[in-house]
Amino acid sequence: MSLTIAVPKGTLLEESRRRLANAGLSLPHDVGRKLILDDPGGGARFLLLRPSDVPTYVEFGAADCGIVGADVLWETERSVSELADLNFGYCRLVVAGPRSAGFHQGRPLPTFCRVASKFVRSAEGYFAERDLPVQIIPLHGSVEISPVVGLADLIVDLVATGRTLAEHDLVIVDEIAPSTARFVVNPVRFRAKYEEVTALLERLQCDA
């Protein structure tokens, strides 16, 4: 029984390909617009997906397992089993604000401040834990310009190098959590394809 593996397009794709290659599975290059790809060795079928769709495909069993950032798992809250931290794709989910606002220097956050984010659930959770009522503004991209143009007071976003923040004169106010790539599996497929899944788990982990 071969595995169907959900692989995220975007920043995690190249390292995912390398890890899979080390595990003996070849995710073909340069495939045009094909989104379903087969390992020439017959060991796996790959689904190339938007990162935020990976947990959905795995939860419903359309894919047996997948690679996805922890940030996506927090945001989608799908019931998938997180089998391993693959320790790549490191970034941090942070609260950031304009340098001029001085929140990073300990100035308290105002009640009902406007928070722009792609990570609505994580942002809501963070402020709810602090009993701070805020207005979350859901965005789909270019979140860092929102304080510059007056749409939001704060943003909650992923930061890898911090360069984008600096370019918009934003500074980190608080770190919510660090995120890395995770290997996830459908809970029933873990049982149904136990040998295949645990073999892949072991081979994905031995490379660090």
């Binding site: 997180e82 089998l83 931290d85 995770r182 599996v185």
Partner: peptide, 9 residues
């Protein structure tokens, strides 16, 4: 029960 090995580790 959720087989969350990352959190268990």
């Amino acid at each position: 029960g959720r087989r969350n090995l990352v959190a268990l580790r």
